[in-house]
Amino acid sequence: MSQQPISSMTGFGRSSAQHGNVSILVEIKSVNGRGLDIRGRLSPGLDSLDADIRRLIGEKLARGSVSILVNIRREAVDTDLVVNDRALDRVLTLIDKISERVDARKPSIETILSLKGIMEAQEPELSPDEEAALHSAILDCVGVALLALIETRRAEGERIGAVIAQRVEEIAFLADTARAHPSLARGAILTRLRDQVTALMDTDKGLSAERLHQEAMLLATRADIAEELDRFSAHVTAARDLLGKGGPIGRKLDFLSQEFNREANTLCSKSNDVSLTAIGLDLKATIDQLREQVQNLE
């Protein structure tokens, strides 16, 4: 099976189209988000398209905070002039009230009709078929902008994926370096344990054999980081597999980065050697860099 693209959650897409006398503009941008959050700004009269637009985006994107602007502008067409009856009634009522208090000539019809809001230009209503055709053209434009957004997210994802892969290999190298560290050789561990047990016996002459055995077991457990290094290897393999498969892998890689960090903390706490502790600190720094990049992935 071929690798799926790795995508960032950051991107931008834009598309415009002309449908009859209507100009359509669609802009989509996305930034990092915990899930898929879609916010839309649609021109008046397009609210019925909101669900379809969300469906289109949901089919293509898994994560990200997405903002979409859909704007339409109608060019000048033959319009009908109509009287706003409510506005006219208010004006006539006001004229009658003023006439009762002031002896003045009433305004002419021309004057009344020239008042703002009395006459309105009304565009002819679209037939159901015309409205359906317009909505289809708008959704097509949304689709084009969405594809442009996806391309920018994938381009950024490819760059981030390469950085993440490099960090994973650095973690693998550091973990292998820790595994080969001289302080973890069997002889070195036995010598260190023997010295520590001797120190325990010297500091407390009354230490019972059972207590001494418990302390020795605890020291041995602290000296052994083989389990942590094995888990490092398993996590590295899992990260490589995810990067190889691609797709929306941000959440899984974020979980792995937390697991990496947990093992690095344990390694540092168990280390009895300064240079081994330094390797653990290098691991933690590299893991932090890994997680910083992972936060941007879909």
Rank of each mutant, 00 (worst) to 15 (best):
R14S: 10
T266H: 01
V197S: 01
D47E: 09
L174T: 02
D202C: 09
N32D: 01
R154T: 15
Q3F: 01
I72A: 04
D80C: 08
S16V: 08
S127R: 04
Q258L: 10
E120L: 15
N84W: 00
E259R: 04
A148E: 15
V82S: 11
P107E: 00
A155S: 14
G45T: 10
R63I: 07
N71K: 14
T191R: 08
I95Y: 04
G64E: 06
L56T: 08
L184R: 13
E228L: 02
I164R: 03
I109V: 15
L113A: 11
I53F: 01
L46Q: 00
S67I: 12
K60C: 14
L193C: 10
V168C: 12
G206T: 15
L146E: 04
I118Q: 06
Q289Y: 06
I109Y: 09
G45Y: 10
L276M: 10
V82W: 04
R231D: 01
R105D: 14
H235F: 13
R14L: 12
S108N: 00
D103L: 11
S23Y: 02
I38K: 07
I160R: 03
S114V: 13
H135K: 09
D254Y: 01
I24V: 05
Q18T: 12
A264I: 02
L174A: 04
L212R: 08
G244Y: 01
I287L: 01
K29A: 05
L42Y: 03
D52A: 15
I138T: 03
D129Q: 10
N71I: 12
V274A: 13
E158C: 04
A285F: 15
L81A: 14
R54V: 07
D129K: 06
D50S: 10
G250P: 06
I249N: 02
L126P: 06
N32Y: 00
L174P: 02
I150R: 09
A121N: 05
R211F: 08
H135W: 02
E120H: 06
I279G: 00
T177D: 11
E169M: 12
S127W: 02
E59A: 12
G161I: 00
R55A: 14
E263R: 00
D78S: 12
L147K: 11
D89C: 11
T152V: 07
I164P: 11
A104I: 11
L46G: 00
V163T: 12
G143A: 04
E228Q: 04
D202V: 15
D78G: 11
L174K: 02
G58W: 07
I171D: 01
I6W: 03
G58C: 05
S136V: 06
D89I: 12
E227P: 02
S136W: 03
A51F: 15
I57D: 01
N296S: 06
I57T: 00
E170A: 14
E125D: 15
F12N: 06
R63S: 07
D230Y: 03
N272Y: 11
L207V: 14
I95R: 02
S65E: 10
V274T: 15
N21P: 13
Q18H: 08
